[in-house]
């Protein structure tokens, strides 16, 4: 590997890291503003113009708080929990193609850290180990509420992973590839995958809500029953890491939904605009469009949180196992029938 490539990849990694951090930081501000808007309040408006410095103030506050390690907890695992949550949240962004390769001096510059040919499986693998941060933290706290929150989180995540995986299987059947880059490229100025997979998209979206522990699926940190859920014993920046990981997860899952189902960096009339604006300009514009889609989905996440009440735990399990799982299997069968429609028609005619 040449050192140029290494530096380039390092730069991309830094970009993904910075983008996740900044978007997550301002998602906290966005969440409070949107909550305020939906509840007919003003929201944060003291720190800086329109309260724009509020996330920084919150961050400083988090760092300044007293660090507490419960006496009866297992110290190593107690610290490992939030670190793991944060690490797993940040590793998913690697396979997302942020823009079409931009040509400079006839050399393509890919806006993706790594185009592995099993991109979706990678995302799925990282999501599936995401539960460890919560479980380890909840158990290491040595607190009943935290343990209950951790157990809820783990069973919820396992249940919804299945439906999520099966909805992705249907998507892979239509696209014929597991590479996120290729899936996005296939939707180039054509019909996005949402048209072929409306049911799959709905299942994926609901499961994404459940996997990120957002309302109405935020049972693991259900205040009215479990104090603070799995992070009851946490204070200072360790708590901040848990809360921050949730926002990063939200950002990344929005990015993945936009890439898989809504065409990623593609946008309508891109090819027509290439003649007017030039190829590279359109690609930069596509980058902007991807972020517009991502912000749209983040808004949806927040909108739902401040609109719908929380599920009861048995309702959550019933929805996962008795509604979403059969629906996603039905979706696979329907997709299979659709893909084999010509052969089936031949069979019927004969």
């Amino acid at each position: 590997m040449s050192s140029e490539l290494l530096f380039y990849k390092l730069g991309m990694v830094l970009f993904v890291f910075a983008a996740s951090m900044v978007v997550a930081l301002y998602s906290t501000y966005g969440e409070r503003k949107i909550a305020a808007f939906l509840q007919d309040r003003i929201g944060p408006n003291r720190a800086g113009p329109f309260g724009l410095l509020q996330p920084l103030a919150d961050g400083i506050k988090m760092f300044m708080k007293e660090e507490m390690l419960p006496e009866a907890s297992s110290k190593w695992l107690f610290v490992l929990g939030p670190c793991l949550a944060m690490m797993v949240a940040l590793t998913t962004g690697v396979v997302i193609p942020w823009a079409k390769p931009i040509m400079l001096d006839g050399q393509p510059f890919h806006f993706q850290v790594s185009d592995i040919n099993i991109g979706i499986l990678y995302v799925f693998g990282v999501v599936s180990i995401g539960v460890y941060g919560i479980m380890i933290g909840g158990w290491a706290s040595n607190n009943k509420f935290a343990l209950l929150g951790a157990l809820r989180a783990s069973s919820q995540m396992i249940s919804y992973e299945l439906a999520m995986g099966l909805s992705i299987v249907a998507l892979v059947m239509t696209t014929g590839t597991l590479s996120v880059n290729e899936i996005v490229a296939q939707q180039d100025a054509g019909i996005c995958n949402f048209v072929y997979q409306p049911l799959g998209f709905l299942i994926f979206l609901i499961c994404a809500f459940a996997e990120t522990n957002r309302a109405p699926f935020d049972l693991p940190e259900c205040e009215s029953e479990l104090v603070g859920g799995y992070h009851t014993e946490y204070s200072s920046m360790k708590l901040g890491f848990y809360l921050f990981a949730e926002y990063i997860n939200m950002f990344i899952s929005s990015a993945i939904i936009s890439c898989l189902y809504f065409g990623g960096y593609n946008f309508p009339f891109a090819h027509e605009m290439e003649g007017i604006l030039g190829e590279n300009m359109v690609r930069v514009l596509g980058f902007g469009f991807l972020f517009a889609k991502i912000f749209g989905f983040i808004f949806l996440f927040m909108w739902v949180r401040w609109t719908l009440p929380r599920f009861r735990y048995d309702q959550l399990m019933n929805l996962g196992w008795k509604v979403l799982l059969p629906l996603s299997i039905l979706n696979i069968v329907l997709t299979g029938l659709f893909l084999m429609r010509n052969e089936l028609l031949d069979l019927i005619i004969k």
């Binding site: 499986l121 799925f124 693998g125 999501v127 180990i129 460890y132 479980m135 157990l151 396992i158 992973e161």
Partner: peptide, 14 residues
Amino acid sequence: IIVYAGAIMVLFLY
């Protein structure tokens, strides 16, 4: 990773 680390081990831990 998905099957062993992500699913079976989580159930063990659970």
